[in-house]
Design a protein around this nucleic acid. Structure first.
Lengths: 212, 212
DNA sequence: TAGATTGTTAATCGATTAACAATC
DNA sequence: TAGATTGTTAATCGATTAACAATC
């Protein structure tokens, strides 16, 4: 299918569709309508239909989409089919948790190794190498790594980020609660727990007020 | 100051301001302008000014905002001053990482205890209790817990969520990669790694295309 | 054919940006 | 006073929703 320009908001909704589609029991109907999908996820049906139209050409009136191919279409659109190799910097608790999480394959992400200023062990629980920072540069170039995951304390994040860019990395997944300064062609995606907490905190505040 | 209605997008930007303001060395000027803040974070200055106007009444022409009180104003607005107690369900790697993370106090979040179907230990590394699920309900009511953090595998997330709601919880921070069905008055905030990965994956794909 | 569903075109809504007036 | 900065009002932009036409 032809590739249209997708809005960032629509892009962010796509993984939700895949997750839901995959959770449907195999013995149910092989077809699903945008309407059904929308209801299941509590979304507007027009929105879902528009999103699906961006990634698939397969909707059939009166029937809907073939579940299997819809999943494939979205995953292909998102680039989950060709695996991305990544390195992770900062083998603390969070870093090790991500390193050990096996669910990332489903999204085409493969964390090759972790790096740390002071590696406690040579291997993670899952058997992935934990290497000293001194080896980062060689490793990245040799393995053509394009993504870096930052799980170091906030005060070291910028310096780590600069090093990653010097190693040829094009996309950074930042778990440190800090703003990173990068050149235009580099993408920083902040996994911002503080943002989520702000939303949650706000909701609880307004709940409290209602009670009183 | 009077409390205006803030947009969700603006709300999500506030934690970024606080993080940056706190990172400024104590010996620099006690004042900061919206312009300076915008430049530092790579944002539009009008946007920053509007956001700040929502939470503070203190901007002074030609001078800017007093850094200290701006931090206070935002934190108070976000409700970081009165602590929220939370329980965490699922003491796996990610769960333990969050349980052990000391940085949440800064956001007014206090994880009291973790729960798990099969607690391996009675305490986490940080000394917080890890309790069996059977004790969840009593614990929540006794401690008036309003927030639940879900770090169980996707297939158990909905059931855990239902239990939490039955325990009087009003806000759920969901780390499981799945959609949760909840009543209207309950807020679910998804910490959606899949979403972030979609954005990153997309960026790398377009980068690759340019190269070729 | 009738009806469920898709896909598209137009209208609305919300948020961002631009222009301007106010202030110290 | 002049100029930097705030805060507000109006214009633009983007995304969502509503209305409709097309299709099996």
């Amino acid at each position: 299918m032809e590739r249209k320009e997708i809005s960032k908001s629509a892009l962010k909704r796509l993984p939700g569709y895949v997750a839901y589609l995959k959770s449907i029991p195999a013995d149910s109907s092989p077809y699903i309508s945008a309407t059904a999908l929308a209801n299941a996820l509590g979304m507007g049906e027009v929105q879902v239909r528009k999103d699906l139209a961006m990634v698939s050409d397969g909707g059939r009136p009166k029937i809907g989409y073939l579940r299997e191919s819809l999943i494939e279409d979205i995953e292909q659109f998102l680039g989950y089919d060709n695996t991305t190799d990544a390195v992770l910097i900062g083998a603390g608790k969070l870093g090790q948790a991500l390193l050990g999480y096996s669910g990332f394959d489903a999204y085409g992400l493969n964390i090759l190794a972790a790096f740390d200023i002071a590696p406690g062990a040579e291997q993670s629980d899952g058997g992935k190498p934990i290497l000293p920072m001194s080896q980062l540069e060689t490793y990245c170039w040799e393995n053509k790594v394009l993504m870096g995951i930052i799980t170091v304390p906030a005060k070291h994040a910028q310096s780590v980020c600069d090093q990653l860019i010097a190693c040829g990395i094009k996309a950074v997944w930042n778990f440190a609660p800090t703003h990173l300064e990068v050149p235009d062609n580099i993408l920083v995606q902040n996994e911002n727990m503080a943002t989520s907490l702000a939303v949650l905190s706000m909701h609880l505040q307004s709940q409290m007020k209602k009670k009183r």
